[in-house]
Amino acid sequence: MRIPPAALIGLFFTALYFLMAIFAPLIAPYGMAEVVSNDIWLPPSSEFLLGTDNLGRDLLSRMIYGGRTTIFIATAATLISFTTGSILGFFAAVVGDWVDQALSRFVDLIMSIPSLILALVILSVTPITVGVLIVIMGFLDATRVFRLARAVAVDINVMDYVEAAKLRGEGRGWIIFREILPNALSPLVAEMGLRFIFMVLFISTLSFLGLGVQPPAADWGGIVKENAEGITYGIGAALYPAIAISTLAISVNLVADWVLNRTTSLKGGRG
């Protein structure tokens, strides 16, 4: 199998970030909240590879742990959004009728407000914990997955081969799992990558606004916030976590792009 260079770069960085997240305690030179220096915003040195942060903590260590938080939240929210959205989407498409109508109109309503705004409204009354964040993000984003899954399933459901299965007398299980699902999988898998990116950006934005992960814990967006003040003094500490967010997102994007291209060219792909 030939992997194009762009996808290879994407795979490399995606793997790197995930491994760093998993093995954070083994890799990080210092503790997450450990104050290692009396000087804040020290420039990068051999002792502190990315320098120190606004409270004199090791920025690299903090970023390694922060990445762990970001990736964990984004993954968990993606899983929620994905399972909820695709199950309901398939269900609406196959059952049709008022079930479809009700679900679709509800999703239209939720999607008529930008998700960041709606999330902010909800977060103004809920306690802000990691669990709550994951659930809010997951369910808000499930609307997008729902739309895609429903559209894909509706397209497939009107194909003659599905009709042929119905005429043969096949049950709903066979039709969903053997006729529709195998053909719906590749666009959905590629979408999963995009959803993950969106979740990374979403949680980073919330934390950056101070409404995501709460101190002393921090994800990348939170670390940007902590060090943002330094920018006006010409100190670039806030840029490192921001760049980490971008590179993770771009890498996953490159991989998703490649998966999408590859699956459409599979035997009997979606031509």
Binding site: M159, D160, Y161, A164, L167, R168, G169, R178, E179, P182, N183, K267, G268, G269, R270, G271
Partner: peptide, 24 residues
């Protein structure tokens, strides 16, 4: 409401053969 026997004895062939077969 048709029986399996009804369905078996009455088959159908379509105009567009490429969409009448599951590509997978």
């Amino acid at each position: 409401n048709r029986t399996k026997e009804d369905l078996r004895e009455l088959q159908m062939i379509y105009q567009m053969a490429d969409v009448a077969m599951n590509p997978r």
